[in-house]
Design a protein around this nucleic acid. Sequence first.
DNA 1: CCACTGGTTTGATATGCATCAAATTAAAAT
DNA 2: ATTTTAATTTGATGCATATCAAACCAGTGG
Lengths: 115, 115
Amino acid sequence: MTTTSVQCCAPIAVEPIDEVAAAELAVLLKAVADPVRLRLLSMIGSHSAGEVCVCDLTSAFNLTAPTISHHLKVLRTAGLIECERRGTWVYYWIVPQAVARLGTLFTPLAQPATV
Amino acid sequence: MTTTSVQCCAPIAVEPIDEVAAAELAVLLKAVADPVRLRLLSMIGSHSAGEVCVCDLTSAFNLTAPTISHHLKVLRTAGLIECERRGTWVYYWIVPQAVARLGTLFTPLAQPATV
DNA sequence: CCACTGGTTTGATATGCATCAAATTAAAAT
DNA sequence: ATTTTAATTTGATGCATATCAAACCAGTGG
């Protein structure tokens, strides 16, 4: 498949989402609903090399290494990023499909049919 | 400025967002990072009449009225919905601009320039 | 004026979670 | 092997928050 459709689920405004879908989405949104994780995702996503070493991420915050590691794990568990160890260092990169799902959720609400 | 551009902030992937922006965005995202609030927002946003009475919202959940009221207040404080009292009942509707901001945050991450 | 219905506010509780220190794993270097 | 550096895991702590019961506010109708 060439398109690998990002539109896997109906956006929020088309019809009321059910409990199960809401619970799943909430997990995904909780992952990004934190200032540190937002910055991490932003730093990883905007990096020109496409991937970032953990050491560079840790040094950019006024937080301990375990804390950054914890936040990276949350993002990874949510499927938003992936990582690989190469020698001593660990590198992280974005999973575009997962992030795109977040974007498609709310856009239809911007142009309500009735307004 | 006449456009009242929905694109008030740069998306996450263009450049690393700073601490202040991340904190503000996290507040907005926390508001929707809850299954009940997601369903509320979805119910309000997808309603054909454009607005929904609180009574209809409360009856759709297995939760008490104060809890629903609490969640509505969180969404309202975040600027995602507004309400008005008409007689005995209170009606809620979506604020499209605020919701649109959520959508524009993540979409650029879907097509990373390096991939 | 007094009840009744719809919603919100307040206070209390219990769970969740962000953070750090200490311990642990992994690879490199000496 | 031992040491050193990078990163994660574990355990503990303190704060945030989802929920409910009770009290309260706002209309409506006897």
